[in-house]
Design a protein around this nucleic acid. Structure first.
Length: 938
RNA sequence: GGGUGCUUAGCUCAGUUGGUAGAGCAUCGCCCUUACAAGGCGAGGGUCGCAGGUUCGACCCCUGCAGCACCCACCA
């Protein structure tokens, strides 16, 4: 009789299991069920467990990094949900200001229009439209992976609520003096026409030149030589600096030089900043276009001359000959003119660090503008303490060093951006340039008693995307309102993210969380490695080595893959190479291994503190693992469905040795997996699962179950016990594995659970298995260990003597302890079945035996008569190899035990173990040696 | 210039108070044995980057070196 627990309505459910594992079919089916039944919603019971998703770009697509992090987050959430925690995985997306704006601008360009032509309001409408159109992609892909966030709570950083939080934070920080507006040099992207933060600038080592230029001394003959990598900025020089102690130039300090090409006269100043040993020891000072020079300029009260327009062309401050020239054109012209004037002393090859914008890759200019800043020092101090005193823990721990290093040297954060897509800065100006900050214009007018006739206009700039991201841990929970979920889920339990955004995001969340919630935003920060390709290269479009998680799950044919990798390249000339590599690496395309295989692979590769080389071979292995689990379930089902699995407590039940052993192993596995998951060792958890499933349950337990279930002698109670164990261990195993491989475990659980007497509509909401130490049975483990040794011994002889696997063998046994003999007698049926024996004949220790091949199980000798079966010289070779191995170990241990230092100083239990092992070896050596001599003498 | 990590079987990686090494994949041999050929049963393969030190004993702890990767930093 079947008693499925509230079966979901499915075709072919009652037809038993499909013969082959087909991940795509299962996976599509189950996700819908889960989501429709709202299984992802926090239960409202139990302790709070919360993970805030690092919000992906709303218009983005899922890449391997997401797949990796999401797998870990989802595994944690599913694990805690099953453990009975009130588990919330908060989903959502980020508006990604610059990135998204750039995408839409590019689209407009392709349509022959542009941002400027449309105007601000119309452009923003376009961006929203693009968000509506493409914004669902990433969440669809998350669903494909099996992610289980509470979709009801999905948030977007530009939602009304989150925007309110942004304004609130800005106003409060401003009122406290922690946000200010200031004019200073910023990192300016002349392509995007906006300021960016230090973090968005990457310095890249590039080959350049060092130009040595003569600056004639005023009113006398002679000149100073300055060296520069950026000659065009000389148009904005306002001094030349030398080191105060530099004897060569001491007398020139306070005098002036004639700045070439400009007709200006500039002073020679002294400053410690100058390194007398570098170049000529004289430095041109351009406060308007260099961060160091700016500082020197401040110290010496030098004027600042800005010679660039926002798009880095020469402006009207420079001599007319250069006006309007692009900076690189201007460089050529300046050099040519200096050369013509005989002022170019020499040109050297020079490698230098060029600052480039993260998004545009254009050379970033230090540029003097008005921007908004967050004063970070006061916020950083408590944020440092929170990690120092352990309220926040980095996993692996060493990342806290990186964090400290940055936090101790933190600079004020430039938060204003001259773009349109983002949170508009809540500041208003009157016609005199006075600034008023408030939640809105009405409030500003009230607060500052501004009459209606005072015209105000809002700041044109928007905030850095990371400003709203920094609020994510509480803005998503309804802050500044005091919602119950804010109370419940803040602080979250763990943040899972990459090291690349520790500064951008993690540090800022900690600062803002402590500031506004008076508590840390999360307890643990689990830092993942980067996913690289199988050669250790970063995955990138331009290298053509990107693996798309969707392709790995659902498959792609070769032509489609080649097309995908070679279209839309920035450097089309790479296409040929990429095509070649792709055809070589995936001659058959990709078969589509399913979400579970991808997740299991990512989990097993998730060693802490290490980048991951994604190896598709390994993924295939883990798909095979899923297949193994599938087939094991089929076996269990075939042997238990429509049969008595011991559900009625009145029926007598008897557990065999193998039953007790596998249950014992299961307890150990449960304990280890729980530990590993608690320690974020997903790799070890996956390995544990793999080994138990394949090497214990499938390879041995299922094989042990076969002779018992088929035995004519075994009692109904014993068979019932084995069926019950088959089903119960599998059912538990499915729950254990569910956080890593949710789909296949759900599918199988639906079949298996009723047979194990489990009720429930989904495995997702079942309890997570917990180890019961009372069921750990060392005796059973030892006995099974001996039986395995016996079986393996026979198999080894069989394999090495080239005896057909199907050929039944007669076996003689001799010697052995009383315990071994008892096991032999009791479990001869197992042994015969697993080792394929024809007969099993015990002989007295001193009885004469025929010429045989020998194997040892503990102290028992297993003899397989040679007659007709066995090749004498092959057996001798085999024995010899075995003897050598034993002798080698014997010698090692012997030496050790003869070393007085060792026997005096090593702990007694170590010495005892060695002695024991030595005796074992000596006995085994004796047995094997005698056997070898017998065979030789024939 | 400062900092971090890595170096273990052909490849990708584990290795938990130091007791002289493991897995998967790949390789080789035999098997389509009624859960599974996406499989079964066996086998081979490592001076744990190099050099010292501590220790009875080092893949593990200490020092130095080399190679690789990454992060931070204002040398014109």
């Amino acid at each position: 009789m079947r008693h499925y627990a509230q079966p979901h309505n499915r075709d072919n459910f009652d037809k038993g299991m499909e013969k082959t594992y087909n991940p795509q079919e299962i996976e599509n089916r189950w996700y819908r069920q889960w989501e429709q039944n709202d299984y992802f919603r926090p239960s409202g019971r139990g302790g709070a467990y919360c993970i805030m998703i690092p919000p992906p770009n709303v218009t983005g697509t899922l890449h391997m990094g997401h797949a990796f992090q999401h797998t870990l987050m989802d595994a944690l959430i599913r694990y805690h949900r099953m453990r009975g925690d009130n588990a919330l995985w908060q989903p959502g997306t980020d508006h990604a200001g610059i990135a998204t704006q750039m995408v839409v601008e590019r689209q407009l360009e392709a349509q022959g229009t542009g941002r400027k032509q449309l105007g601000r309001a119309a452009f923003i409408d376009k961006v929203w439209a693009w968000k509506e159109q493409s914004g669902g992609t990433i969440s669809r892909q998350m669903r494909r992976l099996g992610d289980s966030p509470d979709w009801n709570r999905e948030r977007f950083t530009m939602d009304e609520g989150l925007s309110r939080a942004v304004t609130e934070v800005f106003v409060r920080l401003h009122d406290e003096g922690l946000i200010y507006r200031g004019q200073r040099l910023v990192n300016w992207d002349p392509v995007l026409l906006t300021a960016i933060s230090d973090l968005e600038v990457n310095s890249v080592e590039e080959k350049g030149k060092l130009w040595h230029i003569r600056y004639p001394l005023s009113g006398t003959k002679g000149h100073l030589v300055v060296a520069t990598t950026r000659p065009e900025t000389m148009l904005g020089d306002t001094a030349v600096a030398v080191h105060p102690e530099d004897e060569r130039y001491r007398k020139l300090i306070g005098q002036t030089v004639e700045l070439p090409l400009t007709g200006r006269r500039i002073p020679v100043i002294d400053d410690d900043y100058v390194d007398p040993a570098f170049g000529s020891g004289c430095v041109k000072i351009t406060p308007g276009h260099d961060f160091n020079d700016y500082a020197v300029g401040q110290r010496h009260k030098l004027p600042i001359i800005n010679v660039f327009t926002p798009d880095a062309k020469i402006n009207r401050e420079a001599p007319p000959a250069y006006q309007g020239l692009d900076r690189f054109e201007a460089r050529k012209r300046v050099i040519a003119d200096l050369e013509a004037a005989g002022l170019l002393e020499k040109i050297e090859e020079h490698t230098l660090k060029v600052p480039r914008g993260e998004r545009t890759n254009s050379v970033i200019e230090p540029y003097l503008t008005n921007q908004w800043y967050v004063r970070t020092k006061p916020l950083a101090e408590p944020a440092i303490r929170a990690v120092e005193d352990g309220r926040i823990r980095f996993v692996p721990e060493n990342w806290s060093k990186t964090y400290f290093n940055w936090m101790h040297n933190i600079e004020d954060w430039c938060i204003s951006r001259q773009i349109w897509w983002g949170h508009r800065i809540p500041a208003w100006y009157d016609k005199d340039g006075n600034v008023y900050v408030g939640h809105n214009e009405t409030e500003v007018r009230q607060k500052h008693e501004l009459k209606p006739d005072v015209a105000l206009h809002q700041d044109e700039d928007v905030l850095d995307t990371w400003f709203s991201s920094a609020l994510w841990p509480f803005s998503t929970l309804g802050w500044p309102d005091k919602k119950p979920e804010l109370q419940t889920f803040y602080p979250s339990s763990v943040l899972v993210t990459g090291f690349d955004i520790i500064f951008f995001w993690v540090a800022r969340m900690i600062m803002f969380g402590l500031k506004f919630m008076d508590d840390v935003p999360f307890r643990d920060v689990y830092i993942t490695g980067l996913i690289r390709d199988e050669h250790g290269q970063k995955m990138s479009k331009s290298k053509g080595n990107i693996l798309d998680p969707l392709d790995l799950m659902d498959g792609i044919d070769l032509e489609a893959l080649v097309k995908k990798r070679t279209s839309g390249l920035m450097q089309p000339e790479m296409a040929k190479k990429i095509e070649q590599n792709t055809r070589k690496a995936f001659p058959q395309g990709m078969p589509g291994y399913g979400a579970d295989a991808l997740r299991f692979t990512l989990a097993s590769l998730a060693s802490t503190g290490r980048d991951i080389r994604f190896d598709i071979q390994r993924m295939e292995g883990y798909r095979n693992f899923c297949n193994k689990l599938w087939n094991a379930s089929r076996y269990v089902l075939m042997n238990t469905e429509d049969q008595d699995t011991g559900l009625d407590p009145k029926d007598p039940l008897e557990l065999s040795l193998a039953d007790r052993w596998i249950v014992s192993q299961l307890q150990i596995t449960e304990r280890n997996i729980g530990q590993h998951l608690n320690e974020y060792r997903f790799d070890l958890a996956a390995t544990e699962l793999y080994e138990f499933t394949w090497n214990e349950y499938c390879d041995w337990y299922l094989e042990f179950s076969k002779p018992l279930l088929q035995s004519a002698q075994a009692s109904a109670a014993a068979k019932r016990g084995t069926r019950r164990t088959l089903v119960r261990v599998l059912e538990t195993l499915l729950r254990l594995a569910h956080p890593l491989i949710p789909y296949i475990t759900e599918e199988l659980w639906q079949h298996i659970a009723p047979l194990a007497g489990k009720q429930g509509a989904t495995i997702m909401l079942q309890s997570y298995p917990e180890s019961d130490p009372g069921k750990i049975d060392d005796k059973a483990a030892a006995d099974i260990g001996w039986l395995k040794q016996f079986v393996t011994g026979v198999r080894r002889i069989r394999a090495e003597m080239n005896i057909a696997p199907a050929k039944l063998l007669p076996v003689i046994v001799q010697g052995g302890t009383a315990q071994e003999s008892a096991l032999l007698a009791q479990y001869s049926e197992y042994l015969s079945s697993l080792a394929k024996l024809e007969s099993l004949t015990p002989l007295a220790a001193d009885a004469a035996t025929p010429e045989s091949a020998i194997a040892l199980a503990g102290e028992m000798k297993i003899l397989i008569p040679l007659a007709g079966l066995i090749d004498k010289s092959a057996e001798l070779k085999r024995l010899d190899r075995e003897l050598q191995r034993f002798r080698h170990e014997q010698e090692q241990i012997g030496n050790q035990l003869q070393n007085k230092n060792f026997t005096d100083k090593a702990p007694p239990e170590v010495i005892g173990k060695k002695r024991e092992r030595l005796h074992e070896l000596e006995r085994a050596l004796g047995d094997l040696q005698r056997q070898a001599e017998r065979i030789k003498s024939l």
